[in-house]
Structures are given as C-alpha cells and as structure tokens.
Design a protein around this nucleic acid. Sequence first.
DNA 1: ACGATATGAATGAACG
DNA 2: CGTTCATTCATATCGT
Lengths: 201, 201
Amino acid sequence: MIPMETGTTSSSSSDVNPQLIDPDSSLERPAYHPHYGVVITPYQLQLLRDQIASYATICLKLIDMHKALVNGYHGSTNGNTEVNHGRVPYNNMSDDQMSELEREGEHDQGRVISRKKNLVSGSGNGNLTKAGTTRHRWTPTQTQLKILEDLFGVHGMNNTPNKRRVSEITADLAKHGPISESNVSNWFQNRKARYRRLLRS
Amino acid sequence: MIPMETGTTSSSSSDVNPQLIDPDSSLERPAYHPHYGVVITPYQLQLLRDQIASYATICLKLIDMHKALVNGYHGSTNGNTEVNHGRVPYNNMSDDQMSELEREGEHDQGRVISRKKNLVSGSGNGNLTKAGTTRHRWTPTQTQLKILEDLFGVHGMNNTPNKRRVSEITADLAKHGPISESNVSNWFQNRKARYRRLLRS
DNA sequence: ACGATATGAATGAACG
DNA sequence: CGTTCATTCATATCGT
C-alpha cells in the first residue's frame, strides 16, 4: 500500500517522537541541542526527504489514475510500483559524459553539454547511443534528479527558482554530473507544466 | 495546492546546504553537531513533518476516491474492467533510494535502479494479453485503432486534435474499450512523429 | 529463451 | 506558460 514508514500524525511542534523519524535505530536518535534545538542525523534527514518525495510522486500518480478513471478506464499509469514517474530513471549517458564523470574528484561545474541544433539531428550522424557519439539531450543523473525533485517538492509550483537560484542549483548539481543552467530551468519549466497539466482537466 | 515550504535538497548525506532547508531564515540555521550530525530547529523539523502529514492525508483521500471509483466502475466492453484489485499499486521506493544514497560520493552514472516487481498484477487485460499478465500499457482495441486511424487520415498531419477534440475523441473511443485522454494524445503524438520520420527518410 | 520490431509513454528542449 | 516536437525508454509481440 501506500508507504508510510514514519508516522505522520502529531502536529505539536514540540513533541518529537524518535520513532517517527527512524523507527528501528536506537543508535541514531534525535536529541536536543542546547542551542539549536533538535538534532537529527543526516540519515534521518534523508529519510524525511525521501518520504516527502515519495508522497509527492505518489500523489501525482493517484491524481493521474483518478482522472483516468473518471474518463473511463485508463492505461497511462502503468500499474507498476515504480514511483519515479513510471520511468526507470537510469541514464545511459553518452561516452563523453561518461568520460567526463570518470575524471574523479574533478567537478568542473558550469560544464555545458554541447548541444546541436535539432535541424540536423535526424540524419546520418547524430545520435547513435551505442557508438561513441554525442548525445543531444541532457539526462539528469540519479543524484541530480533526486535533488531536483526534492527542490521541486519544496518550492512547489509557487516558487520557481529565479535566475540567481538557478545558478546556485546548477552549481550544486554540477558536482554530480555535467549540467547547464538551461538544463535546470528547462527542467523546472517542464516539471511545473506537467504537474499543472495533471491538476487541470 | 500541496503545501510545501520546507527545504529539502541535497542528496549526498553529508552535504547539507543550509539555504536549501530554510531559504529565508538566517536565524534558524541548520548546523552540524559534532556528534549527531545535522542540527535543525524544532520549527524546521515541524515543517518537514507537516509536509509529510499533508501528503499522507492527500494520499489517503485520493485512495478513497480511487477505490470508490474502482468499485463502482464496471468497465467497458472487452471485459477489461478491473483495475488492480482495488489495491493501490504503488509501494515505497525508498529502499532503492536509500541504498542509492548510502553509497556516498559515488557517481551514479549508468546505474540502473532495479525495478520493483509489481505488487499487484494488473489482472485486467481484455484483449491481447494473457491471463495473469500485468498490463503495463494501453493497447487500443481494433475498433479504437480503426477510428483513430480514420481520424488521423482525415485530419492528417496538419490537424492535430486540440484538447477539446481529444476529449471528444476519448469519449467516443471509451465506448469501445478502456481508454484515457492521455492515451489518445499520445497516440496522435506518436502517429504524427512516426509519420514525419517516414517523410524525412 | 532470444533478438528484432512495433508502439505506448516519458521527457528535454524549442516554439508561439 | 502552455504546446509541440524530437528523441529515448520500456514493453508487447513475433519469428527463429
């Protein structure tokens, strides 16, 4: 069913139930910091974030299913359990991207994947994913995608990142793979558009 | 819409960008605790939990709506009525995500997230699939396909149906089998694209 | 079973 | 921003 590993009940801001954060960890237990307040481990924080992200995606899926049902039956939502928009988000990266990443530790941010104009794309040269050819399209790595989703979940529709923010995000994401600012803004653009489309009818 | 106000960003468990957690708070700022790790304020924690709670509620409501619809729905022609045994076909992917995340510093290139097996076999599969097989994608019935092809023939490339038209078409096609609007628009999209590709070659 | 092909769907990018 | 295009992914189907 719907995954709920952590409790989602209480709402009083002062009661922090450790179980709700990390049910089985007796080691990593939230604590109070004299100055800041609650202390949680990065792992715990990550759990929370993941849960939020999961819920966000699940909600989208459910909305989709619901709308489809209203229309009659439907198929667009595959019945599988994947939460990542149904699409397995593995990326097959072009060789240059690979080699890019293989230079360990070196995260030249701001690196831009050169993209060709689409006019020429189809023909003889273009896009052989197998052979070491160039990819036309940026594909977010797992990590990048996750970060982006988290950000979207956070800001939601009402908080599309401005130019400055996009720069920051791009810089962050560049640590995890080649990316450009336009990739980021496009991504948010699309995400927003498609999210809205779901909500609409 | 869905309330989201907390920041949730970075992916590597060790790098936590304070801005991403509480963008505008310079007062309440996450910090590192020498022993526990991340320190967040009760307020920040509450935001996270509120968000999760909101999602949980939304999900539950959506599930209810969905179930109601499914139970009441008795599908179209080809006996393809059933939708997932009334069970919500999603499970939590956080396992993958977690294990993913736990591998620190590793670039996620070319990694494939193992797709979880369907918890619920789609069961419904009127026309083409064999019993017990999960239906993953919509398949137009013969009648539907004919209608679609006719429409495409009429409208041709230059007359892609707009939203309104898609709705009408969907409604029509629903008489001949389970279908959703996205199925229809996808179909036209693909038909057009592949037709164009023919012309180009 | 495998490999090739057809095709529904997802999505980055471009357009109006 | 909403739509559309181009490309790619994933699966259903079929031939061997």
